[in-house]
Design a protein around this nucleic acid. Sequence first.
RNA 1: GCCCCCGUAGCUCAGUGGAUAGAGCAUCCCCCUCCUAAGGGGAGGGUCACACGUUCGAUUCGUGUCGGGGGCGCCA
Length: 578
Amino acid sequence: MSSHFSPKAHLTTLFTQALAQFPQALAIAVELERPKQLSHGDFACNAAMQLAKALKRNPREVAQSILASLPASEWVEKTEIAGPGFINVFLKPSAWQRVAADILRAPEAFGRGDPKQGEKIQVEFVSANPTGPLHVGHGRGAAFGASLANVLAHAGHEVYREYYVNDAGRQMDILALSTWLRYLTLCDEFVPFPANAYQGGYVGAMADSIFALHGDRYKRAAADITAGAPDAAADPEGHLDALIASAKRLLGADYAYIHGHALEEQLGDGRNDLTEFGVTFDKWFSERTLHESGLIDKAVERLRQHGHLYEQDGALWFRSTAFGDEKDRVVRRDNGIYTYFAADIAYHLNKFERGFQRVIDVWGADHHGYIPRVKGALAAAGVDPERLTVALVQFAVLYRNGQKASMSTRAGEYVTLRDLRAEVGNDAARFFYVLRKSDQHLDFDLDLAKSQSNDNPVYYIQYAHARICSVLNAWGGAESDLPEADGRRLEHPQERALLQRLSEFPEIVANAARDLAPHLLAYYLRDLAADLHGLYVACQFLVDDDELKRARLSLIAATRQVLHTGLGLLGVSAPAKM
RNA sequence: GCCCCCGUAGCUCAGUGGAUAGAGCAUCCCCCUCCUAAGGGGAGGGUCACACGUUCGAUUCGUGUCGGGGGCGCCA
């Protein structure tokens, strides 16, 4: 952890030393928790109770032994043995009073984990098919992934953010076809538009721009396109595939233009959308490059050499059942085309070849059945599947006036991320999205998110930050002097509560990183804001006593820093005025 | 059929192998001659779904039951 003083870290060191006398203690972790009751001190240690059984001794007796060898500390007021064997530690006020000034001496670094203990981690998230605008489900993956990546980075890891672009699959062909069919109507060639093609207005917009740029260069006869295609009503997917085949045949090299145009338009649109949302990536990894560079062939060959492939019914199968999957999976269809899964195997093997110690995939929860086969493929290729963690993100359901806002992708009537951002703003959207554990269903209350009231947690936290800015502004002194303020003047219970809360921040960041749970940070910030507001009402900051004033200002300046850092990790702004 | 998530205050949800389980909203009562009242204080409100097990200790871990939500079944 960082070089900042932490009462808890200090005590952990002391207890670790005291426990060294017991070989059995190696098996247990030193746990120090903040007791709920004030009368139980600042921290309680349960090591004696954990050790009692292995030592075959009474826990309170073990506690005696631990206390006897607990090194003396200038920050400890007293200790006691309580209840079934808790060791309660009471700290001197000075242990907390130094926290604020300590933060201010290296404000940016507070809460930062030790890079030496960090890992090189890739976080892949969003990765939506570029076949249309991002919707609110993608938005949650984006907000979660971005916040998670920020938290991991702050916790000391080297983080690489990546978006996997599905630019080679059937969905892209359907988009290209959809665009082309819309375009043809502009050329007075009318092919009935399939119900299972992309219906959204953006498709027509792309057709318009192609027509404006190139006139009827891509015009082909409608009759040739539908010739021989299965009936749309009886076999909708077969019908669609036949039209795609016609498009490729009739357009020849021109098909690549339509396809590429649609891809670039949609990918660019998504990139702009995400950038405005504060979500950026180190790399946009193209699926197509996997095919073109032969990485898929290589990956499949690697599985074959390990003896995990077999042929059946003309298709090439991966024996994923040998790795816990419920059935074997096709990697190459009988038509010779690799499945999406084959590309995914190659992609994941490539991730580890690039040197990431750990890979985190953020997926929509509907893909959860996919985990065993991907992990199985890694195991089959000799990569420890534990190095891949899949964080599932459940869908977010929007509520407006207590009513569900529906979304259905192809019908084109879904709520886009852009709509959501326009309605509630980026800050509220980023914050609300990470207010739940990722794998839990999220009911997104639009009315609450956009309400500028105390019901809205985003404003509540931002308001705490703005209030502090306002006080420091009213003071007008040199903030660079505040680290030198005398913390001993911070004696009010509300001041102590805030100091304690501030000292927890590094641990919150570490836990959020460990559990892949940025929501812990969101809740912490709300608690921190509550402590600040409580102090604000209880104490005047700009008092006549100059020493007291500086001490209090150092405290709120440190609070401002943590609010600023924390909100930043969640991608939420920290306004100076509201 | 299989899989995932959830069940905690009237509502929406945090939380933890520990001592008397929390927050916000809603309800009721209070607090601005003062740095932003977008704030604060107080009251009421609970069999942590149920059962069994593991444990010195379970709301937390395991199994089962019941209830609610979602997903999957060579599609990407």
